[in-house]
Design a protein around this nucleic acid. Structure first.
Lengths: 251, 251
DNA sequence: GTCAATACTTTGTCATGACAAACTCCAGGA
DNA sequence: TCCTGGAGTTTGTCATGACAAAGTATTGAC
């Protein structure tokens, strides 16, 4: 009954001429209100039926909008009780983005040095990870990633040749994932293993670390929506400069 | 038209007397067929309209079942094309489980030694992580986790006292998350940071590692569905024995 | 033979209506 | 006082119907 949303009809109107789906418009508006704190943490939002009527949309549409925010961890719903704000910002699921993208987004001035680039038949371990036939041609690249002028990560990747041919110039100027996306290849699913180990002398030298320094390791295989393996990567990061942040949500 | 599902009406029937939602029944049946390989990778499943009719359920119900499997990474949909199997097993999102649960599931015979357990006012850093008022009473615990007879991880945790009082015996016999769940507290959302560093001499001694060995670090804060902080943890793992596995899906 | 327009298929979005299940709260009785 | 029962509220599930948008395949013109 007493809702924080009452009297705020204006910011929740929908535009039926827009190509943006109604449920998404509603979700976005709600998200804005929550992020701005106009609907505080702990507050209950109006019930679905009333909200739908007030917005002039159907209940399924309203439900879908709310569901969207529930999946993002902003709202929770309880049958017989209502829908409540639990967190003012989106808790994103783990992102499938590349290191390069992350650094660009974080203003950390990434630069990439391509140490090696060659086409060779995939050895068994890599063929296995990519779920392709051993001996299939892959592009094997070795890159050194800098951030803010310092070396940050040493990255080894294998990309099946028929997925995307790569050049040194491309790789020096763009992140791998950006190149994939530009060619219509969207990583959709990935499995990662994150571990740690001590740097080998060569790695220490390359990364400007002391002998035996701790490195964060990550191996990943990524597939596109069609189930085709796009990329296998084996990376090491300077633990002193980098860590992985994850947001998880269960249920 | 030509569908791998045709003529397989039997294994896809639904039980309307069951309390299990119809959409979930359909999703489960489909998942079984895919996992068993009866619908192969790459194969298109019957279109929603026909499938719904054949099952005797409505199209929204069918859609919801398919949507469920799409979110789990087994299927992909394309408008105007159809729905296709892309992976024969569920690609789970990152699980919100405890190390203890993982070890039990992996038959690695976990054992826990409680090194410290005391109630104290939360220092600023912990209060900050838990989003509670500084000085609020928390239970501070320090545990050594063994697997297969060997030390594996050194774990520090803070649990607000009003969330759950803990005893040494409880903690020695059960994982922290199991204890939370037993008391009706379900971790729902968490943020984790995974990094690495070298072991301090004390840590090396405790974990039976060499001086300066690489350790995998994880700090985590977990909230329940109501947005209440349940737990803050700062753990170190022997990198030689443990790594994190993640399955991601985007889009 | 090649290319463009058209028809068809399939998923995406939305509305309306109905009932069920879980929870809260209050009133009435032991 | 306690606690039990029922009314009311709110989300969960499901059905039916309709049109839109995107992709594929076919057909027809040049």
């Amino acid at each position: 009954m007493a809702s924080e949303l009452q009297g705020r009809v204006r910011p929740l109107e929908v535009d039926r001429t827009s190509p943006v789906p109604l449920y998404f418009q509603v979700a976005t508006r709600l998200q804005e209100l929550i992020e701005k704190g106009e609907i505080g943490v702990g507050a209950r939002i109006e019930n679905e039926v009333d909200l739908a009527e007030r917005l002039g949309v159907s209940r399924p549409t309203t439900r879908r909008a709310i569901q969207y925010l529930v999946e993002r961890g902003m709202l929770i719903r309880k049958r017989g009780v209502g829908t409540q704000v639990v967190h003012p910002k989106v808790r994103r699921p783990v992102e499938l983005s590349s290191l390069y993208d992350d650094l660009v987004a974080g203003d950390r001035a990434p630069r990439t040095e391509v140490l090696r680039l060659e086409v060779l038949p995939a050895p068994d371990t890599i063929a296995n990870a990519l779920e392709i036939a051993p001996g299939t041609d892959v592009t094997w690249i070795e890159r050194l990633r800098y951030a803010g002028g310092e070396p940050l990560a040493l990255m080894h990747n294998a990309i099946p040749l028929d997925v995307l041919p790569l050049t040194r110039d491309d790789l020096a100027a763009h992140g791998l994932y950006e190149l994939l996306r530009r060619n219509g290849l969207t990583p959709r699913i990935a499995t990662q293993v994150i571990g740690a180990r001590s740097a080998t002398p060569a790695e220490a030298r390359t990364l400007d670390e002391k002998r035996g320094a701790s490195l964060l390791t990550m191996t990943r295989t990524a597939w596109d929506a069609g189930g085709r393996a796009l990329e296998y990567g084996s990376h090491v990061y300077r633990a002193s400069r980098y860590s992985f942040e994850l947001n998880l949500s269960a249920g």
